[in-house]
Design a protein around this nucleic acid. Sequence first.
RNA 1: GGGCGGUUGGCGCAGCCUGGUUAGCGCGCCACGUUGACAUCGUGGAGGUCACUGGUUCGAGUCCAGUACCGCCCACCA
Length: 879
Amino acid sequence: MKDIPPRYNPKDHEESIYSKWENSGLFHQETDSSKKPFTVAIPPPNITGILHMGHALNNTLQDILIRWKRMQGNASLWVPGTDHAGIATQNVVERSLREKGVTRQMLGREKFVDEVWKWREEYGNTIIMQLKRLGASCDWERTRFTMDKGLSEAVLEAFVRLYDKGLIYRGNYIINWCTRCQTALSDEEAPHKDVEGKLYYILYPFKESAEGVVVATTRPETMLGDVAVAVNPKDRRYKKLIGKKLILPIIGKEIEIIADDFVDKKFGTGAVKVTPAHDSNDFEMSKRHGLEPVKIMRPDGKMNENSVRFNGLDRFEARRLIVAELEEKKLLVKIEKHEHAVGHCYRCNTVIEPYLSLQWFVKMKPLAEPAIEAVKSGKIKFYPKRWTKVYLNWMENIKDWCISRQIWWGHRLPVYYCKKCDAVIVSKIKPDKCASCNSGDIYQDEDVLDTWFSSWLWPFSTLGWPEKTKDLEYFYPTSVLVTAPEILFFWVARMIMSGEEFIKEIPFSDVYIHGTVRDASGKKMSKSFGNVIDPLDIIDGFGADALRFSIVSITATGQDVFLSKDKFEIGRNFANKIWNASRFVLMNVGAQEHKSTRAQVKDLSIADRWILSRLNRTIEEATRALKNYRFNEAEGLIYDFFWHDFCDWYVEMVKPQITGERIGDGAQRAEEILIDVLENSLKLLHPFMPFVTEAIWQNIKERESIMVAVWPEADKHYIDKKIESDMEIAKDIIVNIRNIRSDMNIPHSKKIIVNLVPLKQGAGSVLADSMGYVKNLAQLDEIAIKDAGFKKPKSSLSAITENFNIFIPLEGVIDVEAEKARLAKKQDLLKQQLVFAERKLKDRNFMDHAPENVVKAEQEKAAKIREQIDRLGTTMKDL
RNA sequence: GGGCGGUUGGCGCAGCCUGGUUAGCGCGCCACGUUGACAUCGUGGAGGUCACUGGUUCGAGUCCAGUACCGCCCACCA
């Protein structure tokens, strides 16, 4: 047979195997009416992204499903692609321009966008290349990008349809404003973080007297934009003050005390300053009371002309100075420490400013209804199902979605305005003239859409929508979405809404949500923490299969994953084990043609029947686990079977037949079964460890790829509980004998004799078939089953199992007298230890003063020593 | 404020959905081993009152209720 090195070196195989796969076209999937489709749309990574462990986990799981289904004979399609990631990408390109001393404003919109495209040509496919190293079997011919022509078309179509339905509107509202990115953000893009802040109590004096009302605020600088002070109408303290006038400090403006139910009597002083342009509650209040908002800040976070002498100062600097000024004027009553949640930009972590601004929104309630129903009715299922509640809770409290962004990289809103009459025209293409006044002076809205406005169309836009394509017809809805919990609201929920809205059909029936990848201490892996384990380093050092296997092995359904580098040794070692077990099989039996016809069950040995039972049980259970997205369970079952059943036991059992004398026709059958079990194991392993299984497969069958081998089906009549438990009896005896050998230091080369006395009716005949294996694996000279009257021979050790009493005469095997002496010496030593321990336990001083647990430990120690002494005593008597 | 997850040998985790042999796995530890697949290995061993309290049950690591600690997510009390 071929020369197979005794170590699996991933570097020798991965690259060539992957390019073979790519060239073979096996990743590509066309519509095929003879097959059932299985479709997965990749969560498109950002073009700025580089592969991290989260991606590695996410894509490994998808690849497992895709490869498994492909082997099961489905038309298995994995649609890959990338996301243009508006703000993130714009930031990255701006940063690299800045290094050359260029700002985007210097370039102007058009040139800047050109720069971004150039950047994306150069770096935007990095992550795609990295996915290939992981072994991802995506249909690369179908790679999509959210800014592609087709997908952009889908975005415009979606916008126009929603607008025509009245589900998109424009308006002045308080939105989340990032002063660094200088754009509006959706609520999801401005996650709240707990911050240790301060609560400032400020006196607003009455118009007529130095007395006044104290208000509490966390953002004192916003007082410059105050238009009122509000109290709860039921608050006795303030009831009679309602309608009175106050003088707004610093500004000197007159403001009124108003009454509003929103105000919480118990918080702060029960009086709240009203700043409609910089707080959403205040904005709502101002609408109720007909108050005009006053903006005091510019988009860059600096104070504006309404801020009198603070004009031009940064908001936090202004805060500091205003507090100082209030203190000086004795208007600052007190400052309290105050922990509260503050929004932060999800891209740059800048503190979000609630900001009054004219933006575009999607009305979400009508879209949410069918999406809620889809999950409630069970049409869409979450795995694990606890996410259902999280999803429903969010959907039922959904708020309108701010979709306009004040950046340049992205899909420009298909909205046009007439310069002459201010008419708003929403259209996929620029209209020639205004529909209402016929003017040709028309310009397009400057804003672009939220990145997620294109991603939410992903499951169908990638299949050609809005065109009615064959692909869409055949592959949609997709089968399962595999994703991380972080983007449940951003993406998963919105895709369900868009699917229902635009296709009238759910985008996927299953949502598998895996855990977050964290480091060993539980922190999220991120570049800024410096705790990143680079998947490519792991692939270089351990191999892609090792990375895949290990990351799945430590992923219980939906649990977070705690990673450290040494975990990848599990996968590397296993890949090597697979390689070497295969090497053994191929070197010994590979030369002959594998016959698929199996011998009749009755002709098989007990070992053969046992391994076939275990194999078929494993096939059955692993397949069921995969069906339920229990990846680590499936993998664990296959691992245990392959390593602990096949390698540890079966291979060892048949070794003498294979490598030795080849007695009888058992050898031939064992060879057939060896290769059969090996092939089936490789198939089971392939979705998890594609490279090593393919490398071995190519050694067995030169042409065909294991990718398209048929996934094994469990043949139930091989599954035999009786055989399995019979084998356990034999294994138990072997382990007990080995145990005695180990205890007595009997070398492997020393053959011994064993007598078995059955303890149960029929135990002897059950064992009859496996006597040979016991003899062989326990290195025995002779093994005999004796009857119940059998007398324990002199100088022998015994062990009791459930079914047998095992006697091993040791006369002539070891020097009995010397062994007795050795054990006696050991016993003496223990006895001495016991004396010390007991002395301690009788020591008044110790017993009275030592802590309870120490005393207990001491007692346990003594008990253990006593037990050991007894055991040695029995052994010595037996000898 | 609401919701969710975790707590199992020295360490990292399965097992809980579907209650029932002796609670598994990997690492680490101890002893032995170069028996022609594999030292990225083999054989054997030590090590666990399954966080706590109560309940359901013939039987609970597994189901129910509560407590404690750790972690995550959501939320406009300024």
